[in-house]
């Protein structure tokens, strides 16, 4: 072990070095998993129906499908970085779906979209007020708000209104240009860039990590923690609304269950992406890969005829396993 002897790279040492590189850069491992899963799906699909899955069209479809999930998981990432969780993202998206399709006929598309976003932001703000100012546990607060919005939506959906999914929303949510590029990328990509860059290169981004890492230290450094949390939850609501708009465009009609299947995956995508469930470390890049992985996994399960129940079990298991794994690797040193 003395400094003079040359370091011989034993296989064990190489393995350890590799582990370290992976745990410092989870994106490498996640990209690998994504590609591997694609190949597996391809093999399974060939075996089942004789058709390839590894085609440009399927890749494009995967991105098309992944966008709403990735946007729900965007807000979720921000919230989880602060050490919280938002269980209302799905109902907020559903709200946006109803609002945008329910008001477009009478008030025009622009108004409808803005109103849907405002609803998302507003619901997020209420979550934020509860968590940041009245210090309600985020789980309880967002679950409560989710239940209230769902109730309100149920009543609203029973009133008579003219539902109309605007054409532009329809196109955004379901079509492609240049044959392979989904329109929803036009919404998703800028938001993703904004979040990734914002987390790294803005004062607000720094404060999101800081609050998740050590709120007491933040307070003593002069940060008014409630301001950070308030804005984070409000943004989460707004991103969820964008996801809801894409979903209603894809489905061409709003219904109460339109976003519900995405709630658990939105948390799973964040956890797969390497964001700590305790907050303070992680980022949106990992979440995007998490969302892509879950989307391919969903295709694979669908090809295998797995039921919705089985999928739920699997997503839950993934969250638990990864939470355990990340907890182990980070406490190991």
């Amino acid at each position: 072990m003395s400094a003079g002897t040359p370091q011989v790279a034993t296989p064990a040492a190489r393995l350890r070095a590799a582990q370290r590189v992976l745990s410092d850069n989870p994106a490498i491992a996640l990209t690998f998993v994504f590609v591997a899963l694609f190949v597996v799906t391809d093999i399974v699909n060939r075996a089942q129906s004789g058709k390839a899955f590894l085609t440009p069209t399927q890749v494009s479809t995967t991105f098309l499908y992944a966008a709403p999930l990735a946007l729900l998981a965007a807000g979720q990432t921000l919230v989880m970085l602060t050490g919280g969780v938002d269980l209302s993202v799905a109902t907020t998206a559903t709200t946006a779906a109803f609002v945008s399709s329910g008001t477009a006929h009478d008030h025009g598309t622009g108004y409808a979209l803005l109103l849907a976003l405002a609803f998302g932001f507003g619901i997020g703000l209420v979550n934020g007020i509860g968590v940041a100012i009245f210090r309600v546990n985020p789980l309880i607060m967002t679950l409560g708000i989710s239940s209230v919005t769902l109730g309100a939506l149920t009543i609203y959906s029973q009133t008579r209104f003219v539902a109309l999914v605007p054409n532009i929303v329809n196109t955004l949510g379901s079509s492609r240009f240049f044959k392979y590029v989904p329109y929803d990328l036009l919404v998703w990509a800028p938001i993703a860039a904004l979040i990734i860059l914002g987390l790294r290169f803005s004062g607000f981004g720094r404060m999101i990590f800081a609050v998740g890492d050590n709120p007491v230290a933040c307070r003593l450094a002069g940060v008014r923690v409630w301001q950070v949390l308030l804005l984070v939850y409000a943004l989460c609501g707004a991103f969820s609304a964008v996801a809801g708009i894409l979903l209603v465009g894809f489905n061409d009609a709003a219904d109460l269950g339109i976003a519900a299947p995405f709630l658990l995956p939105s948390v799973a995508a964040v956890v797969i992406g390497g964001t700590s469930i305790l907050g303070g470390s992680g980022g949106y890049g990992g979440t995007i890969l998490g969302a892509l992985i879950l989307t391919v996994l969903d295709s694979l399960l669908t090809i295998l005829n797995a039921s919705q129940a089985l999928k739920q079990i699997l997503y839950g298991a993934i969250i638990l396993a990864l939470a355990w794994l990340y907890a182990r690797t980070s406490s190991g040193d």
């Binding site: 803005s202 607000f204 720094r206 990590f209 890492d213 933040c218 450094a221 002069g222 301001q227």
Partner: peptide, 25 residues
């Protein structure tokens, strides 16, 4: 301290403690 963050982020943290500094760094 922010135990999981880098030395640089720790040292710079108080600079961003108010709303007016939340923009691009």
């Amino acid at each position: 301290l922010l135990p999981q963050r880098s030395v640089r982020e720790n040292i710079a943290a108080p600079r961003y403690n108010r709303l007016g500094r939340w923009g691009p760094i």
